[in-house]
């Protein structure tokens, strides 16, 4: 009896809120009808398309397209003023500063040594992180594609870190890696010596790459799993009739058919690896020294965090980065068109 009443109460509340929401919504719709109907009468049915486009394109234009063009202008101006009218035109000076090196392989000989450190760190990061991600997400996807008990649970486990914010991920690992943290306790427990993981440049680089793989591989596992599941099962049946073993069917059926998805994963992870920032910024702040300083953080430091805001250099560096990303994006579009055609 009591329970019945409870249900009724909650239902009444739900109904009440539902009604209120509906009333509000219809008020909004009618109010917008008031504005939209005269417009439609004036410009005609077909041209209403432009009205629908306006809000999105306005914001898109002001906050994406316009900045993309202005960014190039910024890279040709100097000074520390934010407003373009106060910025002197300096031609290619910013790019000259970025690209003046006695020996491009040694950042110490460059005028803007931090930029080149960031470039080399980013290249190193991208190579190891992308290889790691492709490798581990492929292994995980292959295993999850087998006849596994509780597959949904395991898939969720590998995917969960993808949803965590980069700041949270960095703090979780900072807590584990700190001097008196869990990992050092385990190392000492096994008779090893305490390591200051985040104060040693090699270890810091390793952990930054490891954590980035940890946090992102679930996403790519999911894409690869979808690719694996789209391979028609009769191919494997035909293969087993012809007497292939597991390894052969992987090599001759799975791998070739998964290639398009693998390429998409490769390019997507490449594009995202180049933009690495949040996790590393919270975990190491680019340190120790500049061991984990990457391109986006270089841009952020130059434009927003350093004492003097050198917007020109920040913009020039981001133009360079945008050019690299553009190449990858074109590659991605080309590949996805190709895989659609298959």
């Amino acid at each position: 009896m009591e329970q019945k009443q409870k249900i009724n109460v909650s239902k009444t509340i739900k109904d009440f809120f539902g009604n209120v929401m509906n009333a509000l919504l219809s008020v909004v719709i009618n109010a917008l009808d008031w504005i939209m109907d005269p417009i439609q009468r004036k410009i005609g049915m077909k041209r209403m398309a432009y009205v629908f486009l306006v809000p999105n394109m306005l914001i898109f234009g002001i906050f994406v397209l316009f900045p993309m063009l202005v960014n190039i202008y910024y890279s040709f101006t100097g000074g520390t003023n934010l407003f373009p009218q106060d910025r002197p035109f300096v031609g290619l000076d910013n790019f000259k500063v970025l690209f003046t090196c006695d020996n491009f392989l040694d950042p110490n000989t460059c005028t803007e040594d931090l930029f080149w450190r960031a470039v080399y760190n980013t290249i190193k990061f991208v190579i190891f992180q992308v290889v790691g991600i492709v490798l581990f997400s492929l292994i995980t996807a292959l295993i999850l594609n087998r006849k596994i008990v509780a597959r949904g649970f395991f898939r969720a486990v590998y995917f969960y870190p993808v949803l965590l914010s980069p700041v949270v991920v960095a703090l979780i690992w900072k807590w584990i890696l700190q001097r008196d943290g869990l990992l050092n306790a385990m190392i000492i427990g096994f008779g090893g010596e305490r390591i200051n993981f985040l104060l040693n440049s090699d270890w810091a680089t390793f952990w930054v790459i490891f954590i980035s793989i940890w946090a992102n591989m679930g996403f790519f596992t999911l894409i690869l799993l979808a690719g694996l599941q789209s391979i028609p099962p009769d191919l494997y049946e035909a293969g087993s009739m012809d007497g292939t073993n597991e390894w052969q069917s992987f090599l001759h059926i799975t791998l070739p058919l998964l290639m398009p998805t693998m390429l998409v994963v490769l390019v997507l992870s490449l594009i995202r690896a180049v933009q690495v920032f949040d996790q590393v910024y919270v975990l190491t702040g680019g340190g120790p020294g500049s061991a984990t300083l990457y391109l986006v953080q270089y841009i952020y430091n130059k434009g927003f965090s350093d004492q003097i805001h050198i917007f020109g250099l920040a913009a020039a560096a981001s133009v360079v980065m945008a050019a690299v990303l553009m190449v990858f994006t074109l590659l991605q579009l080309y590949l996805s068109r190709k895989s659609d055609a298959v």
Partner: peptide
């Protein structure tokens, strides 16, 4: 612009 992140246009968007 699908894959152009905000991190490459930070300065002008800030403007």
């Amino acid at each position: 612009t699908l894959l152009i992140p905000i991190s490459v246009i930070l300065v002008p968007v800030f403007l």
